[in-house]
């Protein structure tokens, strides 16, 4: 199977170029396995990966123009030649390895932890099964970055727009019955950039390897803001 892989070495190249590799496909082969085979052919090739089963979120890449997790993408589903590029819009460190600093900064900015005003109970904070259900489809995010790096609004304003990943997380804590910082969280999101750069393009929904829906979460945040404003 023919692969075209984006290569870039900041010490020797002025811009990225595509290099062709031939990979022998084995049964049940995932894209990550193919990239490992490429690395066996050329050990200077760099890409991130770790768990190999769609849990760690390390090996997000752009495949034939779509952001995917390499370890859960069967090569049999891909059209030849398979063009593998780094995430769009991110500074390239080397080959498929990109700088995700801004992505993590946006995640950090939404305070991804429970905030309690009340004194902490001696044991756990109780939550009804119904309230727990509200977190389904939100807590599963593995921060692979497929969504935010496919979002045009995040491409244009990555330093100011939170991006779909961080906004999904923002709603995950707004929706949590145990969190007591709703007003502060909503105040933080006001203004034209952090939340409202989202124009419901929905690339995020299209690419999420976990099948999550950041656009819907963003809609929930806007509705809650409106509800608390009128």
């Amino acid at each position: 199977m023919k692969f075209l892989i984006s290569r870039f070495n900041p010490e020797t190249d002025s811009k990225p170029y595509m290099q062709a590799f031939e990979v022998e496909v084995t049964r049940g082969m995932m894209l990550r396995d193919a990239l490992l085979d490429v690395k066996r052919q050329d050990e200077s090739f760099a890409f991130r990966h770790s768990c190999g089963e769609g849990v760690c979120g390390s090996d997000g890449v752009n495949v034939n123009g779509v952001n995917k997790l390499a370890c859960v993408t069967p090569v049999s589903e891909l059209k030849e030649p398979v063009e593998v590029r780094p995430f769009p819009g991110r500074p390239i460190i080397r080959d498929l390895v990109v700088d995700m600093t801004q992505f993590y900064q946006q995640y950090k900015a939404v305070k991804p932890w429970l905030v309690r005003e009340d004194p902490m109970p001696e044991q756990e904070i109780l939550q009804s099964p119904e309230d727990r259900d509200k977190l389904d489809g939100l807590y599963e995010c593995i921060l692979c970055g497929c969504c935010s790096t496919s979002c045009p609004s995040f491409w244009w304003n990555p330093e100011k727009f939170h991006g779909p990943q961080a906004l999904l997380t923002a709603w995950r804590f707004l929706a949590d019955s145990r969190d007591q910082a709703t007003d502060e969280r909503l105040d933080e999101l006001e203004g034209p950039y952090k939340l409202f750069r989202c124009h419901t393009i929905m690339n995020c929904v299209e690419v999420c390897p976990k099948g999550l829906n950041p656009t819907q979460a963003i809609g929930h945040i806007k509705n809650l803001m409106l509800k608390n404003a009128v």
Binding site: P192, L195, F196, L226
Partner: peptide, 13 residues
């Protein structure tokens, strides 16, 4: 721009 410009109000309008 980001200090005074509105987010929610603009979106609602």
């Amino acid at each position: 721009m980001s200090r005074k410009a509105s987010g929610l109000k603009a979106w609602a309008i």
